[in-house]
Lab assay of single mutants.
Amino acid sequence: IRVTEDENDEPIEIPSEDDGTVLLSTVTAQFPGACGLRYRNPVSQCMRGVRLVEGILHAPDAGWGNLVYVVN
């Protein structure tokens, strides 16, 4: 998935696990201090948080898609 520190920055590609999840530790390896991800909902244009359970980030209902995710 494509992740950036700010919406206007160049994104970095972060690998997902075989089950489609992303480990928070993978994100923090590239973005120290990150505690989660958010993205701009293409329909509402509002920022939406990615579900985080026990250090594992779960894809939105429509999958990770071609969105750019921003670190929290």
Rank of each mutant, 00 (worst) to 15 (best):
I1M: 01
I1R: 01
I1F: 04
I1L: 05
I1C: 02
I1G: 00
I1Y: 00
R2E: 03
R2F: 15
R2Q: 07
R2C: 04
R2L: 08
R2T: 06
V3F: 03
V3W: 01
V3L: 04
V3T: 00
V3Y: 01
V3G: 00
V3K: 05
T4D: 00
T4L: 08
T4G: 05
T4I: 09
T4M: 08
T4Y: 00
T4H: 08
T4V: 13
T4S: 10
E5I: 06
E5P: 03
D6H: 10
D6W: 07
D6R: 09
D6Y: 11
E7D: 04
N8S: 11
N8H: 14
N8T: 12
N8C: 09
N8G: 13
D9R: 13
D9A: 14
D9G: 11
D9V: 13
D9H: 10
D9M: 13
E10Y: 09
E10H: 09
E10L: 11
E10R: 09
E10V: 11
E10N: 09
E10A: 09
E10I: 06
E10C: 13
P11V: 09
P11H: 07
P11K: 06
P11R: 01
P11L: 02
P11W: 10
P11A: 11
I12N: 02
I12L: 12
I12P: 00
I12V: 14
I12Y: 04
E13V: 09
E13A: 08
E13D: 15
E13P: 08
E13G: 07
E13F: 10
E13L: 13
E13H: 13
E13S: 12
E13Y: 13
I14G: 01
I14A: 04
I14Y: 04
I14C: 06
I14Q: 00
I14W: 00
P15W: 07
P15V: 09
P15Y: 09
P15F: 06
P15R: 14
P15D: 10
P15I: 09
S16Y: 14
S16K: 14
S16V: 12
S16Q: 14
E17I: 08
E17S: 08
E17Y: 04
E17M: 07
E17G: 06
E17N: 12
E17T: 07
E17H: 01
E17R: 14
D18W: 09
D18R: 13
D18K: 13
D18L: 14
D19V: 04
G20L: 05
G20I: 02
T21K: 06
T21R: 06
T21C: 07
T21M: 04
T21P: 02
T21N: 12
T21V: 04
V22I: 07
V22S: 04
V22P: 01
V22K: 00
V22Q: 02
L23S: 10
L23M: 07
L23Q: 06
L23C: 09
L23N: 07
L23H: 04
L23R: 13
L23F: 03
L24F: 07
L24E: 01
L24P: 00
L24H: 00
S25H: 06
S25E: 12
T26Y: 09
T26N: 12
T26P: 00
T26H: 12
T26G: 06
T26L: 11
T26M: 12
V27L: 13
V27E: 00
V27N: 00
V27T: 00
T28E: 12
T28M: 13
T28R: 14
T28P: 02
T28H: 07
T28A: 15
T28D: 14
A29D: 15
A29K: 14
A29H: 08
A29S: 11
A29Q: 10
A29F: 10
A29R: 15
A29M: 11
Q30D: 03
Q30C: 14
Q30M: 14
Q30K: 15
Q30W: 13
F31P: 01
F31N: 00
F31W: 06
P32W: 04
P32D: 04
P32H: 05
P32E: 06
P32N: 05
P32A: 07
P32I: 07
P32M: 04
G33R: 11
G33F: 08
G33Y: 06
G33E: 10
G33W: 06
G33I: 04
A34K: 01
A34F: 00
A34S: 04
A34I: 03
A34Y: 00
C35P: 02
C35T: 14
C35F: 09
C35K: 11
C35W: 06
C35I: 14
G36P: 01
G36Q: 02
G36T: 02
L37G: 01
L37P: 03
L37R: 00
L37S: 01
L37M: 05
R38C: 10
R38A: 12
R38H: 12
R38G: 10
R38I: 08
R38K: 14
R38L: 14
R38N: 12
Y39I: 02
Y39P: 01
Y39G: 00
Y39S: 03
Y39V: 05
Y39N: 01
Y39Q: 00
Y39A: 03
Y39D: 01
R40F: 13
R40V: 08
R40W: 14
R40P: 05
R40C: 09
N41A: 11
N41D: 15
N41V: 12
N41R: 05
N41W: 05
N41K: 06
N41I: 08
N41G: 07
P42H: 13
P42A: 08
P42I: 05
P42S: 09
P42W: 04
P42D: 09
P42R: 09
P42G: 09
P42C: 07
P42Q: 08
V43F: 08
V43H: 15
V43L: 12
V43E: 04
V43W: 09
V43R: 08
V43G: 15
S44L: 07
S44R: 07
S44H: 07
S44E: 13
S44Q: 07
S44W: 05
S44T: 13
Q45N: 15
Q45M: 11
Q45L: 12
Q45W: 06
C46I: 15
C46W: 05
C46G: 13
C46D: 15
C46Q: 15
C46Y: 08
C46M: 13
M47K: 03
M47D: 04
M47I: 10
M47Y: 14
M47G: 04
M47L: 12
R48H: 15
R48K: 14
R48I: 15
R48A: 15
R48P: 02
R48D: 15
R48M: 15
R48E: 15
R48F: 13
G49C: 15
G49K: 14
G49I: 15
G49A: 14
G49Y: 11
V50P: 03
V50L: 04
V50M: 00
R51M: 12
R51D: 14
R51L: 13
R51K: 13
R51Q: 11
L52C: 13
L52I: 13
L52W: 01
L52Q: 10
L52P: 08
L52T: 07
L52N: 10
L52E: 12
V53C: 12
V53Y: 09
V53D: 06
V53I: 11
V53M: 09
V53K: 10
E54F: 03
E54N: 10
E54D: 10
E54Q: 13
G55D: 05
G55C: 02
I56N: 05
I56G: 04
I56A: 13
I56V: 13
I56S: 09
I56K: 14
I56R: 15
L57T: 00
L57G: 02
L57M: 06
L57E: 01
L57V: 00
L57N: 02
L57R: 02
H58I: 10
H58Q: 11
H58K: 07
H58T: 06
H58D: 01
H58F: 12
H58G: 07
H58Y: 11
A59R: 07
A59I: 05
A59G: 04
A59W: 02
A59T: 06
A59M: 07
A59Q: 08
P60K: 00
P60M: 05
P60A: 04
P60L: 04
P60T: 01
D61R: 11
D61V: 09
D61Y: 07
D61M: 10
D61W: 07
D61G: 12
D61C: 10
A62G: 14
A62T: 14
A62W: 09
A62F: 12
A62R: 12
G63D: 05
G63Y: 02
G63S: 03
G63P: 00
W64H: 02
W64L: 02
W64S: 04
W64Q: 02
W64C: 01
W64Y: 02
W64R: 03
W64G: 02
W64M: 02
G65H: 03
G65A: 07
G65Q: 11
G65F: 04
G65S: 08
G65P: 06
G65V: 01
G65N: 04
G65L: 04
N66K: 09
N66L: 01
N66C: 00
N66S: 12
N66G: 08
N66M: 03
N66I: 04
N66W: 03
N66D: 13
L67E: 08
L67I: 15
L67W: 11
V68C: 08
V68T: 13
V68E: 05
V68H: 02
V68K: 06
V68P: 06
V68L: 14
V68W: 03
Y69G: 04
Y69W: 02
Y69P: 05
V70S: 08
V70G: 05
V70Y: 15
V70C: 08
V70L: 13
V70M: 14
V71F: 06
V71K: 00
V71D: 04
V71I: 07
N72L: 11
N72R: 12
N72A: 10
N72S: 11
N72K: 10
N72G: 05
N72W: 05
N72E: 15
N72P: 02
